[in-house]
Nucleic acid binder design. Structure first.
Lengths: 193, 193, 193, 193
DNA sequence: AATGAATGAGCGTTCATTCAT
DNA sequence: CATGAATGAACGCTCATTCAT
């Protein structure tokens, strides 16, 4: 499996660093190769093309969210609490890796539509976990029966995303994780029964 | 004034069509010129460079939102109602111009950081109106005194934006304006007293 | 006659100023028109094309040399003295008009070959006067009978030209006219009997 | 070292041919690449930009003069004889390579001021050798003690240059090297004691 | 005669990808 | 597996010239 070879991860990590430091449009394949300490051509032994590197960056890192989410959903706590932990998890992961935050919130969004559609597909996993939490809350009476799941999901995701992007654009100058409580309360009020 | 000359608007409109139909990265100046029915060089009599066209697209169309908002804010109605009308206005404008919606929600976000920062500056106007409504509601007791204005603004804007983007990505296959009520209710629950 | 109309000279003078101040490659027709206080299109009522402006600049200003030379050659003095006056005249004209000096010694030489061939044709007049002086000196025994007229002419002209160009490139920081005596002596030694 | 790779010289030689045959302003990078038998992009593996090709052409070929001059100056002969050999060397090198002669005498002079200043810097080496010969001759009594070195240098260089340019403009129709004796005699008379 | 808006051909340079070694 | 030299398609912008008014 290619993904298990050391150079695969080396290139992924190099890509994040290069993109965060140079911006999407100044992240040439040759720069990523140099940062990874491999030849340009070597990149193509592990990735189909440049787009494939970027998708893989997203895929790999998305697992960090998903793995944690998996655990959270299975815990024996209220849906509201799961929502809290999910937001917190999201903020913690990005707050602990500014490079990754810049890349996902700003740089990767400059990619072409095709790439973004693929990224959205990956995001689906994330949104499915979110849906699960919402449905659970509706079912057990914590959340309002009448809410539109899709809209609620868009509100939750849109708010988290907008909050994170604002934080990145303000150059991380306040503590993102500290906002968890407020964001949770705001969203909860919107959806609770 | 250049902006009043017919070719200025002609080029702006051509840019929206070309970008919506070809995608940001496939919208060459020559394509825009052709669509506008002018020579390539003519573009540069009205715009400093390609980026300037895109910023102007955003500026011009943002006025459509702003002008309406101005009226809404001044009406003698509740803050909650103003919020409703603001969401509705946002949805109506974009629902009535699919090309524009595609451009603002998908294509323009692929532009480089410099352009996006300029776009954000333009968006500021929009967010200021939103802040005004939120503050009014807090002041007159409609909205919760304890909410964080910035977070509330991010929730409202994030939700509207995410909802619109989803609608565009689903190829306009449902009625966006019809969602106004639900979105409003959801958001209102989050912020009301 | 177009050359007698005021705008003709206006444009010529504007061209010299613009070229001297902006360099050959930054002297667009529109800039010359602006400096001359006329519309771009007006230029083409007086000149066939851009090249024609530049040739005319050279033609007009060359007359300043030629007119003086004419007088010098007809004076009743030795050929050696005529040579002195010719060099002096050359230096005086250029030393009194730095703009013109920059244009003829540096900027106009960046023009294409076609233009330079035409300029050379104009220069012919100048070289014919020079030849006349040389022939007179050879005939009356002042200059060496055995010298090759063409070579002698190239030496005289090459030396004057190289001296002037050096002076321009050194930004006029020494007195060009003061060099007349030395240059004359040097050249005279080379050709005298 | 890039300069030692075969493609480097290949491109330099192609540039000389293309410029000589098409003129400075009609020598597009793509044309040079085609003549060199490489892809356009390959040019940029060896040269920073187009201007860099031209400077390198001059640099490389100037070495042909300089190398020979070095030998000449060190020979155990009179300064006058060194001057003769220097002129002869200049004429021989250019007479044996018409393309190079056209490029240095006509085409490269159409370049912009920045490039010409760089070319002048390279020429400095050449003029330093010339100065050395002049100083030697003055010191050992061969040349006139009272001559101004700078003027003498300008006369020698101006004459050689003007002679060569005339020969090129007359399409090489007479033998340049044959002129060595006459030119040398003329110049020597001007500077000898 | 004079204007100046409009034209459109033309080109240096970058960079993702390939492939011989 | 790994290399890195070579490729060549693609595009924003300038500016001399025209021509309707």
């Amino acid at each position: 499996m290619k993904k298990d070879k050391p150079k695969y991860k080396q290139i992924i990590d190099a890509a994040i660093i290069v993109i965060a430091e140079n911006g999407y449009h100044q992240s040439q394949v040759s720069k990523i190769a140099k940062q990874a300490g491999v030849a340009d051509g070597t990149i193509y032994l592990y990735f189909k093309n440049k787009e494939d590197i970027l998708i893989s960056v997203f895929e790999e890192k998305m697992e960090m969210f998903a793995d944690n989410l998996n655990g959270i959903v299975k815990e024996d706590i209220t849906a509201s609490m799961k929502l809290f932990k999910m937001i917190e998890n999201h903020f913690i992961v990005l707050a602990s890796n500014h490079h990754l935050a810049t890349v996902t919130q700003l740089e990767l969004r400059q990619s072409n539509l095709a790439l973004r559609l693929k990224i959205n597909a990956i995001l689906k996993t994330y949104l499915i976990w979110l849906d699960a939490i919402l449905k659970e809350g509706i079912k057990n009476g914590e959340f309002d029966q009448s809410i539109d799941i899709r809209l609620a999901r868009q509100m939750v995701f849109g708010t988290i995303d907008e909050t994170t992007t604002s934080w990145v654009m303000n150059e991380y100058k306040y503590d993102l994780v500290e906002l968890t409580g407020k964001v949770h309360r705001l969203l909860l009020k919107g959806i609770k029964a």
